[in-house]
Amino acid sequence: MQAALFYFFAALTLVCGALIILNRNPINSAMFLVLSIASMAGLFVLLHAFFLAAVQVLVYAGAVMVLFLFVIMLLDLKEEDRRKFNLFGIITGVISVAAIAYISFAAIRSGSASVSRTASDIEGGTLPLGKLLFTNYLLPFEILSVLLLVAMVGVILLSKKDLK
């Protein structure tokens, strides 16, 4: 059951990810991003990270995606007109992706021996995460709140009409 669910969600995530970059219309890309993220929340559930799965759906599929769509609507982006074939992008993209992929898979393979093969019984629920956040990670947590404030102020400033 677990394995089946994993394969289902993994496949959904990857396919949607591929469709994001293949789609010509930004709105479609955004929609596939929502799907991809939602299915990743499913993977999180499989990993017993229940709180994060909820946050993922709330923040990404909710807030961030709404922002994206909102901006797309605001800018009134049409389907991209077909420009000249992006050979340069494809070549460089393939080269760099190949390099990164090669390195990361080599790293996974070489590191697999030292990792435990069985999952621990750890539960990423609200309670244990909350406890950690308000004890060990209190300072980063507070700093993060300041960061959010700064971002908010910055965005307000940026979106003023007569930006100098």
Partner: peptide, 10 residues
């Protein structure tokens, strides 16, 4: 730029 960045990271 992105390509050079990734090349560097790699």
């Amino acid at each position: 730029y992105a390509f050079l960045l990734v090349a560097g990271v790699a």
